[in-house]
Structure formats: structure tokens, C-alpha cells
């Protein structure tokens, strides 16, 4: 049996991370430019999140070992990427049109529209969690537990601080919208740290 081939079309973890990181950084540029020019704060925030995520993926790619993706992870990519693209498109549509809509029902429908691809993302994540091998599942579950507890701890602390009456007035909806990105970001940081515990010099 031979080592994983290095053909240009072979999907490897390093190539996927590089492609996704590059796309995120490239996608961040128009968001920052248009958001800055039109004074849309949410678009600038989206650009910053995309840029930070993209740089993180590129850094991960730099240190990743070139290995072919297993079928379970290829399937995850096939499910994850369209859902992620759908989410990005719908969040743009929602963010642009929601304030222009007069009908309350229409505004509500537009506001929750980006949740549809999120459901598909969650489905893809649950499926990969179930079908990957036992050590991969263990690492992911440990990372999810760390992310969930850290996020809960962080937001709980954030909720307690205003009791000190230090002049902080944060909108509840602004806080709530950051729960999921924080959860994913901490998961992304925790996973390689957890994986290190099971790695030896190779």
C-alpha cells in the first residue's frame, strides 16, 4: 500500500485549510471595504470575524501534516461548505433588507432566514461526530465541552459585571448574537490543544 498521493486534485487537510483560509481572508476584504464606506457596523464586524478566522485557518494549514481526508470528513465538507455559503449569502440578504421591510412578519422572516443553513451546519456536525473514529470523536467531544463551559462562564461573568454599576450598557441582543461565534471560536482553539494530549513525537 502506498502513502497518500500528492496529486493536485487530492483533498488533504492542509489544502482544505489553505483554501478556506484564503477564501475567508478574500471575503473579509469587500466586507470591510463596503462596510466602512457605507457605515454598516455589522458588515465591518463580519469582515473582522472572517479575517481573523481566515488567518487562523491559514496558520493551522501551515502546521498541519499533509494527509488525505477520510471519506467521513469528505462528506462533512460536502455538507458543511454549501451550508456555510448559504449562511453567508442569507446573512448579507437579511442584514441588508431587514431594516427596509415594512411588514413585521416580513422583518421576522428575514431576520431568522440565516438560521436555515445553521440547521444544516448542525446536522453536518452531528453526523461527522457520530461517524468519525473513536479518538476523533473523543477529541471533538472534549473540545465541545470546554467550549460550552467556557462560553457559559464568559457570558455569565459578562452578565454579572453590570451589577457593579460601572457604566456598561450592553444591548441584550448584541450579547446573544455572539454566543454561537464564541462557542465555535473556543472550540477551534480547544480542539488542537486537546489533540496534543494524544500526540507523541511522530
Amino acid at each position: 500500500m502506498s502513502e497518500p498521493s500528492k496529486s493536485p486534485l487530492k483533498l488533504t487537510n492542509r489544502r482544505i485549510l489553505t483554501a478556506m483560509g484564503g477564501m475567508a481572508v478574500l471575503g473579509a476584504l469587500p466586507c470591510l471595504l463596503v462596510g466602512g464606506l457605507t457605515h454598516r457596523g455589522w458588515l465591518v464586524t463580519a469582515g473582522i470575524v472572517a479575517a481573523v478566522t481566515g488567518v487562523a485557518w491559514l496558520l493551522c494549514a501551515r502546521f498541519a501534516r499533509e494527509e488525505a481526508l477520510r471519506p467521513v470528513h469528505r462528506r462533512y465538507l460536502r455538507e458543511f461548505l454549501p451550508a456555510m455559503v448559504g449562511y453567508l449569502v442569507l446573512i448579507m440578504v437579511s442584514g441588508t433588507l431587514v431594516s427596509r421591510m415594512e411588514s413585521v412578519v416580513g422583518r421576522m422572516a428575514l431576520a431568522v432566514l440565516p438560521l436555515l443553513p445553521i440547521v444544516l451546519l448542525i446536522r453536518a456536525m452531528v453526523r461527522v461526530l457520530r461517524d468519525q473514529d473513536e479518538l476523533e470523536r473523543r477529541i471533538d467531544l472534549e473540545a465541545i465541552a470546554i467550549a460550552a463551559m467556557s462560553t457559559a462562564f464568559g457570558f455569565f461573568s459578562f452578565g454579572l459585571l453590570p451589577l457593579a454599576d460601572i457604566g456598561w450598557h450592553v444591548r441584550g441582543d448584541a450579547v446573544a448574537i455572539w454566543v454561537m461565534p464564541c462557542l465555535f471560536a473556543i472550540f477551534g482553539i480547544a480542539k488542537p490543544l486537546v489533540a496534543r494530549r494524544y500526540r507523541d513525537h511522530e
Partner: peptide, 29 residues
Amino acid sequence: GWSQADLAERLDVSRQTVNAIETGKYDPS
């Protein structure tokens, strides 16, 4: 004469899992 990747493919697990088992970092089910 198998590489870790060869064994991983035969067991339908990741190479990382084979490495963790071999080095005693992880006990398989």
C-alpha cells in the same frame, strides 16, 4: 511492513488514532 497510514486504512480509523494507540497515549475501545 505497513506504515501508520496503511494500518489506519485497514482499521478504518485515522492515522492520528493509530499513532496514539502505538505510543500508549490512547487505549482503544
